[in-house]
Computed example of a mutant assay.
Amino acid sequence: MKKLLLTSLAFTLFFTSCKSLSSTTYIKAKESFVLGNNKHGKFSVRLKNTSTSNLEIWKIPIDGGKHSPVTVKPNEIVKVNVEKNTALRIENKANEQAVVELLVKGDTGLSMGYKN
Score class of each variant (00 low, 15 high):
68 S>A: 10
8 S>A: 09
33 F>K: 04
96 E>A: 09
92 N>F: 03
110 L>W: 11
111 S>W: 11
91 E>F: 04
1 M>H: 14
33 F>Q: 06
79 K>G: 03
99 V>D: 00
85 N>E: 15
99 V>H: 00
87 A>E: 12
80 V>W: 04
85 N>H: 14
5 L>I: 13
12 T>Q: 09
47 L>S: 02
33 F>I: 05
44 S>T: 11
7 T>K: 13
19 K>N: 03
84 K>N: 15
31 E>N: 10
49 N>I: 00
11 F>T: 13
14 F>W: 03
24 T>K: 01
53 S>K: 08
7 T>A: 14
50 T>M: 03
39 K>V: 15
116 N>H: 04
74 P>Q: 11
82 V>A: 06
88 L>D: 08
113 G>V: 10
41 G>S: 13
84 K>A: 14
81 N>V: 09
92 N>S: 00
76 E>Q: 15
11 F>H: 10
72 V>Q: 03
14 F>K: 06
63 D>C: 03
111 S>Q: 11
23 S>G: 05
64 G>Y: 06
26 Y>F: 10
76 E>H: 09
16 T>K: 00
30 K>T: 06
116 N>L: 04
69 P>W: 06
48 K>V: 05
19 K>F: 05
66 K>M: 11
27 I>P: 07
34 V>G: 05
15 F>E: 04
106 G>I: 10
101 E>D: 01
102 L>T: 02
1 M>K: 15
54 N>D: 07
43 F>M: 05
85 N>M: 15
65 G>N: 04
76 E>R: 12
73 K>Y: 06
102 L>V: 03
38 N>H: 12
88 L>T: 08
11 F>W: 09
2 K>T: 15
36 G>F: 07
49 N>A: 00
108 T>H: 13
104 V>E: 02
65 G>Y: 08
80 V>S: 04
29 A>I: 11
79 K>A: 02
94 A>K: 03
50 T>N: 03
63 D>Q: 02
34 V>Y: 05
64 G>A: 05
66 K>H: 10
59 K>T: 02
65 G>F: 03
40 H>A: 15
88 L>P: 09
7 T>E: 12
24 T>F: 02
25 T>E: 13
56 E>Y: 08
32 S>N: 06
11 F>E: 06
100 V>Y: 01
41 G>Q: 14
75 N>E: 14
5 L>Y: 13
71 T>Q: 08
35 L>I: 12
52 T>F: 11
84 K>M: 15
27 I>K: 10
39 K>I: 15
81 N>M: 07
113 G>M: 09
95 N>L: 03
63 D>M: 06
71 T>R: 03
65 G>K: 06
76 E>P: 07
46 R>D: 04
96 E>L: 02
99 V>F: 00
59 K>E: 01
